[in-house]
């Protein structure tokens, strides 16, 4: 199992568009992927779940991945949260 803490860098919070891209990226991996924020942990399969977490710009959260391709998945999400999300 891999866990990493990120800070949300997209300008307007985790809204529909970044959330839907995140869901479709997570779908590409076999591992179970979830986000933990303020003691709530939700699976990255549900757009409603991701959006209703209500993570705001500048706040931190954990990404938890477990499964056979967890390393690749973490690498992918790392790129998403550190770089790509800034232009969404």
């Amino acid at each position: 199992m891999l866990t990493k803490t990120f800070v949300l860098k997209c300008p307007i919070g985790l809204h529909a568009r970044p959330a839907s891209i995140l869901i479709s990226e997570a779908e590409k991996f076999k591992s179970e992927i979830s986000i933990r924020y303020k003691n709530k942990e939700i699976s990255l399969k549900s757009i409603i779940g991701v959006m209703t977490l209500g993570i705001k710009t500048g706040e931190s959260f954990d990404v938890i991945i477990s499964g056979e391709d967890e390393a690749e998945a973490m690498e992918r999400l790392n790129k998403f949260f550190e770089e790509e999300i800034q232009s969404l």
Partner: peptide
Amino acid sequence: EAYKLLLNDPIL
């Protein structure tokens, strides 16, 4: 398209 995503949402 967004509605379709909601139709497949596991939480709901």
